[in-house]
């Protein structure tokens, strides 16, 4: 191969590599911007903290989550709260744990509802959709 052809080939290769790097970095940035992982993590953390707050409050009570969460499904159990979006792989689910006192239990599934309420009723914590007068 002569020198000129070789240098043109190298130049094309260099341009392809630069374009590839730019595309990869842009894809990563766009993927990060579109991802709602941060929202899910923050919501799961907020709910776990809400559970701890209600547990530490004497008597019964209801607390409403102050954001629209209609994009997500929530599963509350005695020990954890999970936030998922439909049709997502298992590894993308976000779970936050908490520790309940003996005799307490927690349960509830809320699917794609705008308003989310956490209720403490004696020794039971219930995650449910808020009633109209609660939000």
């Amino acid at each position: 191969m002569n020198t000129q052809a070789s240098s043109i080939l190298m130049m094309i290769f260099e341009i392809i590599v630069v374009i590839l790097v730019v595309v990869i970095v842009s894809q990563a940035a766009v993927g990060f911007a579109k991802s709602d992982t941060v929202v899910k993590v923050n919501t799961a953390t907020d709910l776990a903290l809400m559970v701890n707050t209600l547990i530490g409050t004497p008597g019964d009570g209801v607390t409403a989550y102050p954001y629209n969460v209609s994009k997500y499904t929530f599963i509350l159990s005695s020990g954890s709260v999970m936030v998922i979006t439909p049709d997502e792989p298992e590894f993308k689910r976000v779970t936050r744990t908490f520790n309940l006192p003996k005799g307490f239990s927690a349960e509830g599934v809320v699917e794609n509802k705008e308003r989310l309420c956490l209720e403490k009723n004696a020794h039971k914590l219930i995650l449910r959709e808020c009633n109209k007068n609660e939000s």
Partner: peptide, 19 residues
């Protein structure tokens, strides 16, 4: 989130509930 916030919220149960 600040670790002290979580600790405050968890520890609120110690002096507040009969359990």
């Amino acid at each position: 989130y600040p670790p002290k916030l979580k600790a405050e919220l968890i520890s609120s149960r110690f002096a507040n509930i009969p359990e």
